[in-house]
């Protein structure tokens, strides 16, 4: 078995295949960068709703790019065209690339047909963030909601996406739920496709 697994030697550097690169980045580096993003946006706004919107917009740009990249890399330039397909794509593929794990749960809303929820016990962007009491229900997960909206919108599934804290029984910390409310046309199209 000698020689098995030995890397092939290339005489010319140009013949070498492109390395896939490191798949992970430092969590600390990300946390500081994200913290700066939030702090910068805080200086640009005068109310919390505006801050939420700005974070969401920042995420939207990420989402649109992530969709493009993943469709090219993982799906051979194809994208999901069905509602459940795109939702599970976000829940598993997108989440895995961005956060290194599949999201904790994907559920359909009980009250409305057009609502879906992705829940996460400890959202990566919120790992080190404590919201001050005077900011009420503000959630930095708005950035992630923006990413989800970016992916869905670019894939042809316009939706309103928001992030909420949901208290959990027996848990000290609430979990974060990303609420997705699809536009009417999406559901009509789904119905037509059967």
């Amino acid at each position: 078995m000698i020689g098995v697994g030995k890397i092939k030697q290339y005489s010319n550097v140009l013949d070498k295949p492109l390395s896939k690169g490191k798949q992970e980045v430092s969590l600390s580096a990300f946390a500081f960068l994200f913290s700066e993003l939030v702090q910068y946006n805080q200086t640009q706004v005068d109310n919390i709703a505006e801050l939420e919107r700005r974070l969401e917009d920042a995420g939207y740009a990420v989402g649109a790019r992530v969709l493009e990249l993943l469709c090219h890399r993982d799906k051979g330039n194809r994208r999901e065209t069905r509602l459940l397909g795109i939702l599970s794509f976000v829940h598993s593929t997108v989440w895995k690339v961005l956060f290194g794990k599949v999201a904790d749960s994907l559920e359909k809303g009980t009250e409305h047909e057009d609502e879906y929820m992705i829940s996460e016990k400890e959202l990566l962007v919120n790992k080190f963030i404590s919201i001050p009491k005077d900011m009420g229900t503000f959630n930095c997960g708005a950035f992630v909601a923006g990413i989800v909206r970016g992916v869905l919108d670019s894939a042809g599934f316009p939706a309103v996406v928001t992030a909420h804290f949901v208290p959990m029984e027996g848990q000290q910390r609430p979990r974060t739920t990303i609420l997705i409310k699809f536009a009417e046309e999406v559901l009509q199209r789904e119905a037509r496709l059967g």
């Binding site: 994200f34 913290s35 993003l37 939030v38 805080q42 080190f128 404590s130």
Partner: peptide
């Protein structure tokens, strides 16, 4: 360093 310095607020 984790929960105070990385907190944007």
């Amino acid at each position: 360093t984790d929960y105070v310095l990385k907190n944007p607020f």
